[in-house]
């Protein structure tokens, strides 16, 4: 089956097509997500060696780092959807903007919480107001702010417009979070996984971490597509095609 890519993207921009294509992909993505998370978790928690200094408490990294990755990457997804929504006025982009916020907030909470649990035995404190922790907390408030702001509007287009602007302004925070540990003195250590040089972690430890990161990315995509599909159904509830789907589902149950 040959797919014409420009046409394919245009189709994704239509709620109806997004619902259909997303529905075809979801089972595969969910299966792959479960597989990667299961393999990564078992490998990281049971088979990877313990750390020479921290012992077993370092294993929190297998949740903390993937969650933090997604918290940052998810913000760019949301802001990009905001930009597309502002420029092209695409319905699906509005919906992605709305649906990305709570998932991103959940990932940020997970990263903050797992970091605190790790910080207590390692640093000796749950929390410290250094640049990394504080900018990450700001990210959580941005996510929650966008979620609350979106839901405070009656009209969806107006909500999308205002939230897109807030999301775009908030993108400033992402490089700050990422570089905070290099720019300023912080309690949080610099990045372990590096793009340009060798990682300062033993291979037997970072290999399961990569599996977990891939698993979290897929988990994010799966959750986002599912949420967007639900929102599409709700917004298009008065159209013919949604009615057909509902009637079909009803007749199957009978």
């Amino acid at each position: 089956m040959a797919i014409k890519w420009p046409l394919f993207f245009h189709k994704l921009g239509s709620p109806r097509w997004f619902y259909r294509i997303g529905g075809m992909w979801l089972p595969w993505m969910a299966a792959l997500t479960s597989l990667l998370l299961l393999v990564g978790a078992v490998w990281g928690l049971a088979f990877a060696p313990e750390d020479f200094k921290q012992g077993n408490s370092y294993r929190i990294i297998y949740v903390h780092v993937p969650a933090a990755f997604i918290a940052l990457a998810g913000y760019y997804v949301m802001a990009l959807a905001g930009a597309v929504s502002l420029i092209w006025k695409m319905k699906v982009a509005d919906i992605v903007l709305k649906c990305a916020a709570p998932i991103g907030a959940a990932m940020t909470v997970l990263a903050l919480f797992s970091g605190a649990v790790w910080g207590k035995p390692t640093w000796g404190t749950w929390w410290v107001w250094d640049a990394r922790n504080t900018s990450m907390l700001v990210l959580l408030f941005l996510y929650l702010g966008i979620y609350a702001l979106y839901n405070s509007f009656e009209r969806e287009e107006q909500a999308a417009k205002v939230c897109a602007v807030l999301a775009l302004v908030g993108t400033v925070n992402i490089p700050i979070i990422y570089k905070s540990v290099d720019w300023w003195f912080t309690l949080h250590q610099p990045a372990t996984l590096k793009i340009t040089q060798a990682s300062s972690m033993h291979a037997s430890m970072w290999q399961p971490l990569l599996v977990m990161i891939a698993g979290f990315y897929l988990l994010y995509a799966t959750l986002l597509i599912q949420r967007v599909r639900v929102e599409v159904l709700y917004r298009e509830r008065r159209t013919r095609w949604v009615r057909d789907i509902v009637l079909q589902a009803g007749s199957v149950r009978k």
Partner: peptide, 10 residues
């Protein structure tokens, strides 16, 4: 408070 570095090894 202890400041951990980015080194991890068995």
């Amino acid at each position: 408070l202890a400041k951990h570095d980015e080194e991890y090894m068995p």
